[in-house]
Amino acid sequence: MTASKAVFALIHGGWHNHSSWSKVTPFLEAQGFTALTIDLPGAGVHALAPTSRDHRPFDPVAFASERSPVAEATQEERTEAVIALVKQAAPLGSGKVILVGHSAGGMTVSAVAERVPELLLAVVYLAGFMVPKGMPLLTMLQHETMSSALAPKLFIGDPIAIGATRIHAGSTDEAYRALLKASFYADVPEADFAQAASQLHCDESNAGALAPSEITPGRFGSVPRHYIRCTRDCAVPLSGQDHMIATVDGSIGGKTITHTLESSHSPFLSQPANLSKILVDIALRSNTAQ
């Protein structure tokens, strides 16, 4: 890698972990870029499952009501973790980082862009939640443009009572697994879907869905932003993606640069080469503009 190249920091979405990017990083590295990933607090190696998940025989009532062991996790913890990753990444390249957030990870990359805009060459949303100041993810998810989203049908139990939004990725119920695939992985080969599902954790702390966006024109708005639209997304529908782009552009100013993939919610699995090409193009464009 040449010293002039930016480094990518790749942030996973809800219920996922750093392995989301395992098919993308080799493409980026083949083009001479470094890419760092992370398990956010409460995810991956940091995830804790409700004990009822592993009880046999499985008790669906207990699983739907047990208090989440990650209920106290905060959005601030995730923001701080990614700021630390960005600070680690910056000296490895040009001194600035291209920060990429998938799905709910968009809330974290927005918070980081607001806090350390001077360390970012660009911020990129992959079918990500990019919401205006003062709005939490949950409010955006309830907008009419999100009404066709399938993912909420996966949710189990009362999020307020259990302190988290819970799914059951390990369910053996055929209808539930079909809904999981349709929501996140509609165009992903079956073997890759099975592997991805095995990596998902049960609980996303409510903090990530309830913490309001704090983006401002002066800080977040100073970072070039890109949005990769996924046209066949059933978790964050295209109409919702376009609504978020228009809303943030209208409230923050400037223009989000858009890119489009004919994909489901998880092009890092179904189209890693095409996704990587877009990311490399963003990096090259950003270096030229710097």
Rank of each mutant, 00 (worst) to 15 (best):
N287F: 09
P189D: 12
P217D: 06
H168L: 15
H259P: 10
K153Q: 14
S148E: 12
S239L: 15
S239D: 15
L28K: 05
A127H: 03
A209Y: 14
R177E: 11
K133C: 15
D203F: 00
K181F: 07
S103N: 04
S183C: 05
Q142W: 07
A113V: 01
E76K: 13
P224N: 00
E144D: 14
A62F: 01
P212V: 04
Y227F: 15
A186P: 11
Y185I: 13
L210V: 00
L48I: 08
S52C: 07
K133T: 14
L261Y: 06
A43Q: 11
A89N: 09
H259L: 10
S270H: 02
T108Y: 04
I257M: 13
V123C: 15
I228H: 10
G253Y: 03
P224F: 02
P50I: 08
T74N: 00
P272H: 11
V123P: 10
G106A: 00
V112E: 06
N274M: 14
A122W: 00
I160E: 14
L261V: 10
T172I: 11
G13R: 03
V82G: 08
A43I: 04
L150V: 10
V24T: 10
R229W: 08
P132W: 11
G218P: 04
S270W: 03
A6S: 13
L275M: 08
H168A: 15
T165G: 04
E204R: 00
H55F: 11
S20D: 14
L138C: 12
I245F: 09
S147F: 07
I167W: 02
L238G: 12
A235G: 02
A191W: 04
